[in-house]
Design a protein around this nucleic acid. Structure first.
Lengths: 136, 136
DNA sequence: CATACTGTAACTATTTTTATTACAGAACAA
DNA sequence: TTGTTCTGTAATAAAAATAGTTACAGTATG
């Protein structure tokens, strides 16, 4: 992250929950999200890697949840989807000749890890079932 | 956020704390961060807007902290620096003809606000003084 | 064997972020 | 009062990240 990986993944999972086991194909899902089907397939590949969804190839194929929605918590989804640190991840190396520059990356990482842990903990208190149930 | 606004702001504040009231100019700060001085000046302008720093124009000018580092908490810095939601903020509108697409932006925003509040609360438990003191 | 999917790669377009250039205005010091 | 060195800010350019597109091999189905 950032970008829209988490939003897209959660959108996919919510759709899959709402249709109760029915297979949805990437074009249908992309139509709901309003994005490119290939992006959906990439996101599904990642969700599959982490065991959240199952896919069936070939004609009539598509995807479905691989777990009970009550057993999918949003912190786990976040971790599966996350690609980089939420706050930091700057690419330009601070100046090693400066006492602050030399150490700040380390200290920022500690700070960010701790803050992000708090965020994930919050997300972990909610399941896909909870989230999906808020739709009417 | 994201990007490096928070990292840069915190780097600036740490430097200003370490030099104990001495004025630092944008070129010096940029040298420690290893970025462009104009970026530092923009970041300083924002920190000034929120009352964290004071600047002095003209020859011999520069910036210094406007508050006691023990009274600057990192959650406040985060809020001052933040430009967009940490998780969400997708620009393509989901499909309004889909029950999930129609409501998901709202539900994601609720989810993200709550998660981000947990993150800010974590950051708020730490002051610039604490952070700066971890440098040796 | 035609059809309709997934999975994936390669490429392009778009958007976001960062860097650069430029210059007016402020403070200082000779 | 003039040259110097800063800030503040705008406009632009470059670079990086993100999303979209095209293409196609492989797989299941009828």
């Amino acid at each position: 992250m950032n970008s829209s990986h988490f939003s897209i993944s959660l959108h996919i999972l919510t759709l899959l929950d709402q249709v109760k086991g029915q297979l949805l194909n990437s074009e249908y899902i992309a139509g709901s999200i309003n994005c490119n089907p290939v992006l959906v397939r990439k996101e599904l590949a990642n969700l599959h890697k982490y065991g959240f969804v199952q896919s069936k190839e070939g004609k009539g194929g598509g995807s479905t949840l691989a777990k009970n929605p009550a057993d999918i918590n949003l912190g786990d989804v976040y971790r599966a989807v996350k690609q980089k640190s939420l706050l930091g991840e700057s690419k330009n190396e601070p100046n090693p000749d400066c006492p602050v520059g030399r150490q700040i990356t380390l200290h920022l990482n500690d700070l960010y890890d701790d803050a992000e842990t708090a965020l994930v903990k919050n997300l972990s208190s909610k399941t896909l079932k909870d989230f999906s149930a808020s739709f009417k």
